[in-house]
Simulated assay, not measured.
Amino acid sequence: MTALPDIPRLYTALAECLAVLLFTPALAPRFSKAVTVGVTLLWAAGLSAFLGLTGDVPGGLWIPCMVTAIGLSYLYLWGVWSITLLEAGYHCSRAFLLAELFASVKWQLHCGLWPSRVP
C-alpha cells in the first residue's frame, strides 16, 4: 500500500471556508450585507493564515490546531448569522465533516493524477 503525503494546509483552509459558506445562504445575517461580507472575508483570511502558519507543527499539536480552526468557524457562524449556539454547532460540524471529506478526496485525486507533483 502506498502512503499519501499530508494534505497541504491551503487545501484544508479552502475546503473549510467553502464548506462553511455553503451553509450560510439559508441563514439570516445579523448585520448589514457590507458588514457580513467584510467579516466573512476577515474570517476566511484569518482561518487560512492560521492553517497556513501551523502547517509544519508536530503531530501532537495537529489536534489542537484543528480544534482552533473549528472554533474559529463556530464563532464566525454564531457571531455573524442569526442562529443559536446549538444551531451554530450543528452547521459547524456539518461543514467540518464536508470540508475534510472534500479536502481528502481532492488530495487523493491530485496524488493519483499527478504523482510527480506531490510535494
Rank of each mutant, 00 (worst) to 15 (best):
Q108I: 11
G52A: 11
C65Y: 00
A34D: 14
D6P: 11
L61M: 06
R117N: 04
G60K: 07
F23W: 15
S32E: 10
P64C: 08
A15C: 02
F23K: 00
L75H: 02
L101N: 03
T68I: 12
L14V: 13
L101E: 03
I63N: 05
P29T: 07
R117E: 08
V37M: 10
G89S: 05
A3V: 13
L10T: 12
L113C: 10
L113D: 03
A19Q: 06
K33T: 12
R30D: 00
L98I: 08
A88G: 02
L109P: 00
M66T: 03
T40G: 08
S93N: 02
L75M: 06
Q108D: 01
S73Y: 09
R117S: 07
L101R: 07
T12C: 00
L75W: 08
V118F: 02
A3T: 14
M1S: 11
L41C: 13
V105K: 06
I83M: 08
F31G: 00
L85M: 12
G112C: 09
L77T: 05
V105E: 00
S82P: 00
G59Y: 08
A34Q: 15
V57A: 14
L113N: 08
D6E: 13
V80E: 10
S93C: 12
Y11C: 09
F102G: 07
P8G: 05
V37C: 05
E100F: 14
F102A: 15
G71E: 10
L97M: 11
A103S: 15
L27T: 04
W62V: 15
A88H: 03
P119C: 02
W78A: 15
L42H: 02
L113I: 10
